[in-house]
Design a protein around this nucleic acid. Sequence first.
DNA 1: CACACTCCCTAAACCGTTTCATCCCAATAG
DNA 2: CTATTGGGATGAAACGGTTTAGGGAGTGTG
Lengths: 342, 342
Amino acid sequence: MTTSRVTIKDVAARAGVSKGAVSLAFNHKPGLSEATRDRIFAAARELGWAPNLTARTLAGSRVDVVGLAICRPARLLGLEPFYMEFVSGVESVLTERSCSLLLRLVRNVEEEVGLQEAWWRGRQIGGSILVDFQLGDPRVAAAERLGMPVVAVGHPSLTGSLTSVWTDDATAVTQAVRYLAALGHRRIARVGGAAALGHTAMRTAAFDEAARVLELAGAWQVTTDYSGEAGARATRSLLMATPPDRPTAIVYDNDIMAVAGLSVAAEMGLRVPDDVSLLAWDDSQLCRLTHPTLSAMSHDVHGFGADAARTLFGVITGEGPGSHPVPTPVLTPRGSTAPPRV
Amino acid sequence: MTTSRVTIKDVAARAGVSKGAVSLAFNHKPGLSEATRDRIFAAARELGWAPNLTARTLAGSRVDVVGLAICRPARLLGLEPFYMEFVSGVESVLTERSCSLLLRLVRNVEEEVGLQEAWWRGRQIGGSILVDFQLGDPRVAAAERLGMPVVAVGHPSLTGSLTSVWTDDATAVTQAVRYLAALGHRRIARVGGAAALGHTAMRTAAFDEAARVLELAGAWQVTTDYSGEAGARATRSLLMATPPDRPTAIVYDNDIMAVAGLSVAAEMGLRVPDDVSLLAWDDSQLCRLTHPTLSAMSHDVHGFGADAARTLFGVITGEGPGSHPVPTPVLTPRGSTAPPRV
DNA sequence: CACACTCCCTAAACCGTTTCATCCCAATAG
DNA sequence: CTATTGGGATGAAACGGTTTAGGGAGTGTG
């Protein structure tokens, strides 16, 4: 049923030129007259030919595939608005350059290092976007050793010499705490993300520092796995404390957990924001769909992904290493934060 | 810095055999003694060699990449729990076979047809998962013409001769309506998904039929773009009607819209489920995080993705075409549905 | 008219595998 | 002792492009 594959040779024959000429034409390289060029394109169109990317890659030209390995249990991933939004931002840039995304879920960093190496040596990808950096992440050394174009999504302190794209989480955390303190909150808690992640550690440190500077009466932090269930559990245990020990405001590390927190408060008969203020992170559409709407540290995740992709193209085309901060998440007050009603 | 690439030739030389022998060893094909085999693997390990997948593909062996093109605006995608969950299910199967997912966002079906064809002719992929079928979808003919292994996620009536994996949405819709009717609801509305989609049409028809059979006093349907905003808008206009014309129950085509509907009800001072019952679809974690929790047509989307991937492997390995229904979404009552308080 | 210089284009080498026809050789059969 | 067998290994031909050294045909100069 399949029409026998049409190759560059067929096009060349039909246009009455050599294979090399066809190649030159399709790569927009000089050394061909306009007339021949047109003839070649016409022949290709008639035959419905397009260059075989595999062969093209083998022959040593650029690879138009970008790798992305994500290290989260598959089941959790589906629920994280962050990643899908990030990926869609990446895609938006790839698409306009006719590139594709090679996506893979891995169990741990070691597995990812192996995968990236296999991809790179196998010329499956032209470069990779690395996410979820940990302290002393082995991928830094691996990428350098392989000489592989890479963009690291994470704070420069975690990503070593790699070109990085990052948000200033420390500043954002500080602003979040300052904002709540300015509203009059003195007992503030934070429900953080996965403890192993570098940016969780940075946020944790920043939170502590802010609490110290502002001399808060109480500051709690817990880490979770980012899931709604974990967020609910954490919120429940925080709110179960009796008033003097109970926080009047809670900051979450993503919005799924904030939504969960909101429903826990309702279930416990606490009014938001009167009895407890809630502040989400990442600000997906979700934050505007709850009642009350969720105040959030708002962040253009889609744009973040797009920036990462753009930066990767820069690295691939040989730009020197660099550090590319993207805008710091900005506080977007909505209905879930207010001064505490003592 | 990159150590000059090590190829199969180096390994062959080091093991004192021919390239062909190394190839046989690494593909676990017969015709080699145990001793030689071991020697080859040892040499490969010492040199840190892994087969170049591009070359392997070019030479005509199987391609271990699966394609998936999704046709939604990038910004919407990030918010749809469905897709990420589906993708993570696909990944879970691919991973255990060392396959990767080539993902791309497209603007329309025509673009997808072009993309799939380019992927296939370029031997970039070994097969594809096709989603979001429309009536008279051009991908059916394209896949046949190309002789490309494909699994179609959609009802057989939409996917023609292609091997399909599908949920019986019509039955599910009927059950949803029956359930609400059994609770005593006589005025039921449905906030549907994108009108162009085949399964939306099927659900719409099933809803109409169920309303007719049950002789409901009122049955409204609207279509949306699946976004929370659209869900909120639709809900608002439905609930703005004065009581005799106002539905007492609403079924949504995904859970984002149901969450949005919930907050609209709250904002309008209507109690859920007393004044209006809400029933979500797909049942991601979200449905358990709201207050009240959302009743939903529950559906193992992760497993759905996994089934699709498994079926694709079946097609690739030459199994004949087939129709693979997965379990029908099952009604999971929670806090958002109850008999109407007249 | 010989020479150099362009401009187009071709031919062949190459990329790193797989595949398959073939060869070698030891063991078994006749 | 020769013929047959068959497992183990080889070498060369694909696979479908890119790349580059160089050839031939025109043109402009001395």
